[in-house]
Nucleic acid binder design. Structure first.
Lengths: 250, 250
DNA sequence: ACAACCGTTCCAATATTCGAAACAATTATC
DNA sequence: GATAATTGTTTCGAATATTGGAACGGTTGT
């Protein structure tokens, strides 16, 4: 086991309700001898990967990580464009917007833009959501071939519920969720991808269920598909489809 | 030289106009043999510290870094409170706000909140600014004893220019900058710190120079000192001083 | 098709890392 | 405030990973 692998395992402990770690916690969570855990954290401290909180024995990621996440977010052409697009959309409609990527069966917001409306949905990045249970996630899943989706969800029930939803997204070009993750909150999502890097991102707007008329929602859908279409054209996404039937009442 | 140090050196390459790296670039920038650079990046890829962009030979920080920076930002009580406070301030006044920390002679924004006004200052986190040349930085420097500041700035001229400015900040409780870093942009900053972890953060609002009246600016100063004072009380900051003379015209 | 460049793999020598146990320092309990 | 319990650090030989040089595939551009 190289020290780099162990270091990565330590870093992976962070992020899910875990903002700091001690030597013993690392020793226990990774099953390492105390001695090794102690030396490992020491080395990581010295390299700046970790830093001590105050003068205590608690460790958190070093501040270098702030630069790294910034580098990640700007390294992708699609991501940069998506950020700009969602920022505009968020300002135009006053609702909170996200840019998200999919990581296996989860989606991860990599940028958020708080809305300007008095009543708007709070934004928080870095959290993971199950892909099959939000508009953002489904918009990204809909870019996969049905066979790939089946591979990702071997458990029957989920796949069965998912298939018609994804079909609809593929036809209409956008994904919708209504009070799914959070009561009172609806979401709209459209996905684009870069064929070169094969990275796909989802543009998403979230808004209060009761405050948005059908007309406004349609306007948002149009605007999102427009924006995403621009990105798709710029990066040459062959999978992007502008919605055809979206104005036909359900 | 342990592999961990080299890995950290690679990670440090990112962030300053550098979002991705190749084997040769790493080899050159760190002065490593090609072989070592190749193996190093391979290991870092396998552990998730890096990932390949598309199928190319370019590497960027792995997406794990998104979680890490989130963990960093939430690991501190002051930071969390400061985020909430600046978010409120930003919404209340419509101007863009920042939360920043100092790293030696630089300041680093760790959270940003875009303003809602039509004309507002763009926000971007992850960038570093010289501490002595922005309100945020000076508000943090003012928390140091004069001797510590002198230690940080051994070069005479800077220290001389800085001393009276910091004095004023210590007396009034807030820092001001006018068209300093960016033409047409003014900034207001107030710093608070946690005596337990000895972490200090700066709350900052930036706004268009020509669009803010003296009255509004004073209102902002009051609100910021109020918010920061609440944090200072909560965490028990002994250095925080509410402004006494700030309404006295200069 | 060729050349130039970039990235990967092999090798033995070297340096780091490993785990157990003793040691030190902190925190908790009485 | 003393003792016990927990947590973190250091030491050691043995085991293992890392190192740089050179030779080997692959890609790119002319």
């Amino acid at each position: 086991m190289t020290i780099l692998e162990n270091a990565a395992l330590v870093l992976r402990c962070f992020g899910n309700n875990c903002t700091d770690l001690t030597v013993s916690e690392v020793s226990e969570r990774l099953g390492l001898p105390k001695a090794s855990a102690s030396r490992l954290l020491k080395s990581m401290r010295e390299t700046g990967m970790l830093e001590e909180i105050g003068g205590s024995r608690r460790h958190r990621p070093g501040r270098m990580m702030l630069n790294l996440s910034a580098a990640f977010r700007y390294s992708s052409g699609v991501i940069g464009r998506a950020r700009a697009a969602v920022h505009e959309l968020s300002q135009a409609f006053g609702h909170t917007g996200y840019v998200s990527i999919r990581d296996n069966r989860q989606v991860l917001a990599i940028a958020d833009f708080e809305g300007t409306n008095a009543l708007r949905v709070g934004a928080s990045i870095g959290n993971k959501l199950p892909a099959e249970r939000c508009a953002t996630g489904r918009s990204l899943l809909a870019r996969l071939a049905p066979a790939e989706v089946a591979l990702l969800y071997p458990d029957g029930p989920i796949a069965e519920r998912l298939a018609p939803q994804l079909d609809r997204i593929r036809r209409t070009g956008y994904a919708l969720s209504s009070q799914e993750t959070t009561p009172g909150v609806d979401g709209l999502a459209v996905a684009v991808g870069d064929p070169v890097t094969s990275e796909a991102v989802s543009l998403c707007l979230v808004y209060p269920h009761n405050l948005v008329s059908d007309a406004e929602r349609n306007a948002m859908i149009d605007a999102m598909i427009d924006s995403a279409g621009g990105i798709a054209e710029a990066v040459g996404d062959p999978l992007f489809r502008a919605a055809a039937e979206r104005r036909v009442p359900a």
